[in-house]
Computed example of a mutant assay.
Amino acid sequence: MTSITAMAASRPARRPRRQWRGWLFVAPFMIVFALTFLAPIGYALGLSLFRDQAFFGGTTFVGLDNYAQVLGDAKFWESFLRVLLFLAVQVPVMLLLALVAALAIDSARLHAAGFFRIVVFLPYAVPAVVATLMWGFIYGDRFGLAADLNHLLGRDVVAPLSSGWMLASIGNIVTWEFVGYNMLIFYSALKVIPNELFEAAAIDGAGPLRTIVSIKLPALRGAIVIATIFSIIGSFQLFNEPNILYTLKPNVIGTFYTPNMYAYNLSFGGQQYNYSATVAIVMGAITAVIAYAVQLRGARKGM
Rank of each mutant, 00 (worst) to 15 (best):
T2I: 13
S3E: 12
I4W: 08
I4M: 11
M7I: 12
P12G: 07
P12A: 14
R14T: 12
R15F: 05
R15G: 12
R18V: 13
W20E: 08
R21C: 09
R21E: 15
R21T: 14
M30L: 15
I31W: 06
F33D: 00
A34H: 08
T36S: 11
F37N: 02
P40I: 06
I41A: 14
G42K: 04
A44T: 11
L47C: 02
F50K: 09
A54Q: 13
F55V: 14
F55E: 07
F55T: 14
G57S: 00
G57H: 09
G58K: 09
T60I: 12
F61L: 10
V62Q: 01
G63F: 02
L64D: 02
Y67F: 13
Y67V: 09
A68G: 12
D73Y: 04
D73M: 02
F76C: 03
E78D: 09
L81D: 09
L87K: 10
Q90K: 10
L95F: 03
L97T: 06
A98F: 06
A102E: 04
D106H: 14
S107T: 10
G114L: 04
R117H: 05
V120S: 04
F121Q: 02
L122N: 03
V126H: 02
V129W: 12
T132V: 09
Y139P: 05
G144P: 12
D148P: 06
D148C: 12
N150H: 07
L153A: 14
G154Y: 03
G154V: 04
A159R: 15
A159N: 04
S163T: 13
W165Y: 11
A168P: 00
A168T: 14
S169L: 08
N172Y: 08
T175D: 02
W176Y: 15
S188Q: 10
I193R: 05
P194V: 07
E199M: 07
I203F: 06
I203R: 10
I203W: 01
I203E: 03
G205Q: 05
A206T: 05
G207C: 02
I212T: 13
S214W: 03
L217W: 04
P218V: 05
A219K: 00
G222K: 08
G222Q: 08
A223C: 00
A223W: 03
I224F: 14
I224A: 09
S231P: 01
I232Q: 01
G234K: 03
S235V: 02
F236V: 01
E241C: 06
L245H: 04
L248W: 13
L248V: 10
N251A: 11
V252C: 08
Y257P: 07
T258V: 04
T258I: 01
A263T: 10
N265G: 09
G270K: 12
G270Y: 09
Q271W: 10
Y275Q: 07
T278N: 03
T278M: 05
A280F: 07
I281W: 09
I281N: 05
V282N: 02
G284T: 05
A285S: 06
I286Q: 01
T287C: 07
I290D: 03
I290T: 03
A293D: 03
V294C: 10
Q295K: 04
G298I: 00
G302H: 12
M303T: 13
